[in-house]
């Protein structure tokens, strides 16, 4: 199949879908078979959007919320992969390290990021530290798992060959393990990033001043569904943007992978 044509087709259908949905929403609200208290009409959402963009809502304007959230996600994400990727690769490369670290990891892994909130507050207070901790937990797990799997997915004969050539350890990591594991490591990073964004809302339940999670929380408290929709859309856009950024980094760091 022609890739260009396929992309065009997908784009067309995608745009048509959104258009149809918007039309359905507008018609439903106008005709009132979508009750306004359950589904805010487009007009209200637009008003809410303008309100938060121009006057501000929940103690900040949209770009302030947006930037602050991006910053939090960045901190949490970088801190998580800085620990998670090396740990996962180490566990993948050395069975000794795996045996040593895996039990503690297995204990911590299934605990939901939300469940760390009470402890995050008493340990780190109400500042950004506590929020970053909660986000960190969310992003840490996928980065470890996929880095581990990345190393394990390297063809054994490659490793054998490198070993038999007797190359130094550092070179072995740099030339064999890292490039071999990279595709799956990036899969992990992608999942980590998504986890960061979905956890952000929870993190900002810890009394934030600005941030998209705070915006959503305040809109929830005000029973303002139109503003909730604006907040959700903003989170989705921020998530998509940062993912696009990550994809860019990915294609730069793996030039040998034809796309």
């Amino acid at each position: 199949m022609n890739a260009g044509a396929d992309r065009g087709f997908r784009l067309g259908v995608g745009v048509a879908t959104f258009a149809a949905l918007a039309a359905f929403w507008a018609a439903g609200s106008a005709q009132q078979w979508l009750p306004a208290i359950y589904f805010p009409p487009p007009g209200e959402v637009w008003t809410a959007f303008v309100q938060v963009l121009v006057q501000g809502y929940a103690d900040g304007r949209l770009h302030q919320h947006f930037l602050h959230s991006c910053l939090l996600v960045l901190y949490g994400f970088v801190a998580a992969i800085a620990v998670g990727v090396p740990l996962g690769m180490l566990m993948g490369a050395s069975r000794r390290a795996e045996a040593l670290f895996n039990p503690a990891f297995l204990l911590v892994r299934p605990i939901p990021p939300l469940a760390w909130i009470p402890l995050a507050i008493v340990w780190l207070g109400l500042g950004d530290g506590a929020k970053v901790l909660v986000i960190w937990f969310a992003a840490f797990v996928p980065s470890v798992i996929n880095s581990y799997a990345g190393v394990r997915s390297i063809e054994p004969h490659l490793v054998e060959a490198a070993r038999s050539l007797g190359i130094p350890r550092a070179m072995f990591w740099r030339e064999v393990l890292l490039p071999g594991a990279l595709p799956l490591v990036f899969t992990g990073l992608r999942l980590s990033l998504q986890a960061c964004w979905t956890t952000l809302v929870a993190g900002e339940l810890i009394g934030a001043i600005t941030g998209l999670g705070h915006l959503l929380y305040q809109a929830g408290l005000d029973l303002n569904p139109a503003m909730i929709v604006v907040g959700m859309a903003a989170v989705a856009v921020a998530g998509a943007l940062t993912t696009a950024l990550l994809t860019l980094v990915e294609s730069r760091s793996m030039p040998w992978r034809a796309r």
């Binding site: 939300l114 998504q194 964004w197 979905t198 956890t199 952000l200 809302v201 929870a202 339940l205 959503l216 909730i228 907040g231 959700m232 989170v235 989705a236 921020a238 998530g239 998509a240």
Partner: peptide, 9 residues
């Protein structure tokens, strides 16, 4: 689009 929206939202 919806993937990034948290369950808690």
């Amino acid at each position: 689009a919806l993937r990034f929206v948290a369950p808690i939202a």
